[in-house]
Amino acid sequence: MPKTQFQNVVFTAIMAFVMVYGMIVYNISLNTGGVSTMCFLAAFHEVPIMVPIAFVLELFMVGRIAHILAFQVMRPDDRPAFITYAISLCICTMMCPIMSLIATILFKEDKTFGTFVQTWGMNFPMAIFYQMFYCGPFVRWIYRHIFTEK
């Protein structure tokens, strides 16, 4: 995984894009009643707004807190995969409510607390599932091909 600040920035940028794009497609699908080609295209209208927000949040705040929280239950000598999973879960647990709140404020017609709670509740299970089984492994695969270890 990232060993330098530059590598961390690249990894975070890729992760923010893939995760945010997937979650936007999911939310558009919920709003339209199903997945269609339009969902995948319409998601690109929100990406320029949401990806930079997710990138900045994760790079400067959430990522650091997630590492601290993960190492409250993990030890540095634990299996690296388990450490990665713990950090990913901590990041999802913090990013999902923050991004759901931002999306509610920016994109929902009804900007109430109830709408935010519903958005968060619908997003959280999908965010965990998507991160752990698809987005995380895919982004780590991309990262390994960009930064090959010698």
Rank of each mutant, 00 (worst) to 15 (best):
N8F: 15
V9N: 07
V10Q: 12
A13K: 07
I14D: 12
I14R: 14
V18D: 06
M19H: 15
V20R: 01
V25H: 14
N27H: 10
I28W: 01
T32K: 15
T32F: 02
G33N: 14
G34V: 13
V35Y: 15
M38N: 11
C39F: 00
F40P: 04
A42T: 10
H45A: 09
E46A: 14
P48D: 02
P48A: 07
M50R: 09
M50A: 09
M50V: 09
V51L: 08
V51F: 08
P52M: 09
I53H: 04
E58W: 00
L59E: 09
F60P: 01
F60H: 07
M61Y: 14
V62H: 00
V62G: 00
V62D: 01
G63M: 01
G63W: 00
R64L: 05
I65M: 07
A66G: 04
H67G: 12
I68L: 10
I68E: 04
I68C: 03
L69K: 03
L69D: 02
A70G: 08
A70S: 06
V73M: 08
V73P: 01
D78K: 05
R79F: 09
P80R: 07
A81R: 07
I83V: 05
T84G: 04
Y85R: 02
A86R: 01
I87H: 06
I87E: 07
S88T: 11
S88C: 07
L89V: 09
L89P: 01
L89S: 07
C90L: 03
I91N: 09
M94C: 05
M95E: 03
C96E: 12
I98M: 10
I98P: 06
M99F: 02
T104E: 05
K108M: 10
E109L: 02
